[in-house]
Design a protein around this nucleic acid. Structure first.
Lengths: 230, 230
DNA sequence: ACGATTTGTTGACATACATCAATGGAAACC
DNA sequence: GGTTTCCATTGATGTATGTCAACAAATCGT
């Protein structure tokens, strides 16, 4: 592992406040993965052998059942994957694939659990990481239950705009992929975008330009549903 | 607090493996709440002042947005509420109300956070509790995205039957409440039950009798979606 | 620069579910 | 015991979203 990777990893929230000794223990057998786009790195139902840390790129977590596939989240760096599954040593509830060329670190699950069982600071950092993930997915369930497709898209665009820090930005994924993330069909997202044209959304391929005030009035964002947890 | 309550609380997963000293610290200012049915005990958006432990009864967590209400989960004892919100000292993402007369203990959030910040065992127990909750809600999101209303009902009935340990059981809630839990309207659940009559479900008010083999064949339960986490 | 492949859009139609209204039946209250 | 209220069911209809098919537009490979 390159030292630049080690520095990057050290900065993850998962390691905030922990001692160098424990950090070295957990990362002793770390490996780096460089993956091309559209590469499946986790398969639903398998026991986790590693904790994954996303250093760069973009990952989609998804799940399949009865012939259908749904996207559960997009993950951008810095992100830790399958913390809960590793902690409980239980099968992963989702698969994961790269949406872009991505760089990840893998930490042996056994080493992670050993550290959780001995180090308070690591345990606390992991608990806080999990709390954030819990709240994020809780919000996503509310989003799904309480909003229709167009509203979900509108609010997603507002959030992306905030992350980008501009009312003009480029989305990282294709529209079909975005549709899956929002829980709708590829065809339907076209119609949702068409509706949003009346509410301050201009699109040119992946380039978006939004009228924030107008779109906000339409989308009614709510901090109890929208925006990633700190 | 009665000593029988203290014993009950001591047995919660949240306190598994922790020292008596820390247990006493966390529960020093515990209070007991006896609530009638349909009493709101938590309101979405407020900062948590207490961690709640459900000792007996039944609770529904729900959320409202833009005039709509959705039920996120039913909670049965033993259950800990709003662990993530207390840990992060962030606003609760859901409200909660009793569905039946219920007995709860409240632990001051400050004391809980203090213990998390000092005690490894408590931190680990809380992390495991949180992992379980995370996985439960993750499953619920998959359930919502990957199944239609009738399939969700069918699988819910199978799970309830397993919990009851019998193919004959009584559901604890009214059908409208159950409908909300499944994310559908009160009217629609009647039609869903009607469909399931062909697949091994007999109902008489709240009494259910299912043909497990037949219903299983129809419902296609999946451990990656169904059943509470251990 | 060209054809080939993928990705997005649009229309027509099908399905799932919500809503509104009417009714029936069960439980609660004098 | 009768009335009242609540809860569940059913029918009719509306709306949101999915699916299939055709096509258009963008991207890729050579």
């Amino acid at each position: 592992m390159r030292s630049s990777d080690a520095d990057l990893i050290r900065g993850f929230a998962l390691f905030r406040g922990i001692s160098d000794a424990i950090f070295d223990e957990v990362t002793a057998d770390a490996a780096i993965l460089d993956l091309p786009p559209d590469h499946v790195l986790l398969t639903e139902g398998e026991r986790p052998e590693h904790l994954f840390l996303l250093l760069s790129g973009l990952i989609e977590s998804f799940s399949q059942y009865n012939g259908k596939t749904t996207t559960l989240s997009f993950l951008r760096p810095p992100a830790a994957l399958i913390v809960a599954a590793v902690w409980m040593d239980q099968p992963q509830l989702h698969s994961a694939r790269t949406l872009a060329r991505s760089r990840l670190a893998t930490l042996p699950a056994r080493a992670v659990r050993a550290a959780l069982a001995t180090d308070r600071a690591f345990c606390e950092a992991a608990g806080r990481e999990l709390s954030i993930r819990y709240r994020d997915i809780f919000k996503e369930l509310k989003n799904q239950r309480l909003r229709n497709a167009t509203d979900r898209l509108a609010n997603w665009l507002l959030t992306e705009s905030q992350v980008a820090g501009s009312d003009e930005f480029r989305i990282a994924v294709g529209k079909a992929t975005l549709a899956a993330r929002l829980g709708i069909s590829g065809e339907h997202i076209s119609r949702a975008f068409a509706q949003l044209r009346e509410h301050g959304v201009e699109t040119d391929g992946k380039e978006m330009r939004i009228n924030t005030a107008k779109l906000t009035a339409f989308a009614k964002p709510d901090p109890m549903i929208d925006g990633a947890e700190a």
